[in-house]
Amino acid sequence: MKKIMLLGILLPYLAFSQKYQNFYYEKITKRDDFIIKIESYDSKSGVYYRINCGPYSAPFEEKIIIPLTKKEKTDLWKQKVEFGDFAFGECTVIEKITVKSNFYFENEKLPPKCIQTQLQKEQFIKLSMKLRLILESKAEYRNTFYWEFIKR
């Protein structure tokens, strides 16, 4: 019994003491069940990949390496740990457009179902936006996708 109590006390401490875990982010957008955009990022390799597809055009692929620092990975990991112990997976359907996004941290299984509460959705959006802001702040991203930063 003492071991179980000790484990209950130490387990949260051990989770927060870990500096970071690598992760994989993926976002798939479909229109009428046809994939129109895939965006992914692998923190272990630093590969950021996106592909735009159209029903009547050839796919347009973009792939670059954007390494994250240990501090950036640690910040994302800390935010994930604050949210609790569930795998992040969001599914949004608006009319004929479906968006599925997932964060897979090391040693996590694929999420069995989509986020179910508003709180989980808000947390997922915060985590996704934090990653997006980090990636967009990198010189590799800004140089490759320069047209996204031209003011109109």
Rank of each mutant, 00 (worst) to 15 (best):
K2I: 14
K3D: 11
K3H: 04
L7A: 13
I9Y: 13
L10K: 10
L11M: 11
P12I: 03
Y13M: 15
F16E: 03
S17E: 10
K19A: 09
Q21K: 14
Q21E: 11
N22W: 04
Y24P: 00
Y24Q: 09
Y24V: 02
K27I: 09
K27H: 01
K27T: 11
I28T: 12
T29V: 15
D32A: 06
D33P: 03
F34S: 03
F34H: 12
I35Y: 12
K37H: 14
I38A: 01
I38N: 13
E39C: 10
E39Q: 14
S40E: 06
K44R: 08
N52E: 13
Y56G: 05
A58L: 15
A58K: 13
A58H: 08
A58C: 11
A58R: 12
P59V: 12
I65K: 10
T69V: 02
K70Q: 10
K71V: 10
K71D: 01
K71H: 06
E72W: 10
T74K: 05
T74Y: 04
T74A: 12
D75I: 08
D75E: 14
D75H: 09
L76K: 03
W77K: 02
K78A: 00
Q79M: 08
V81L: 01
E82S: 05
F83I: 00
F83A: 02
D85S: 03
A87F: 04
C91K: 15
T92L: 15
V93A: 10
I94P: 00
I94R: 14
E95M: 11
I97Q: 11
I97V: 14
I97M: 11
V99N: 07
S101F: 01
S101H: 01
S101M: 05
N102T: 13
N102C: 05
N102S: 14
Y104I: 00
Y104G: 01
E106F: 08
N107K: 14
L110M: 08
I115R: 06
Q116S: 09
Q118C: 01
Q118L: 06
K121R: 15
Q123D: 07
F124M: 12
I125W: 02
I125H: 09
M129L: 08
L131N: 09
L131G: 10
I134K: 03
K138N: 01
R142A: 05
T144C: 09
F145K: 03
W147Q: 09
F149V: 12
F149C: 01
K151E: 05
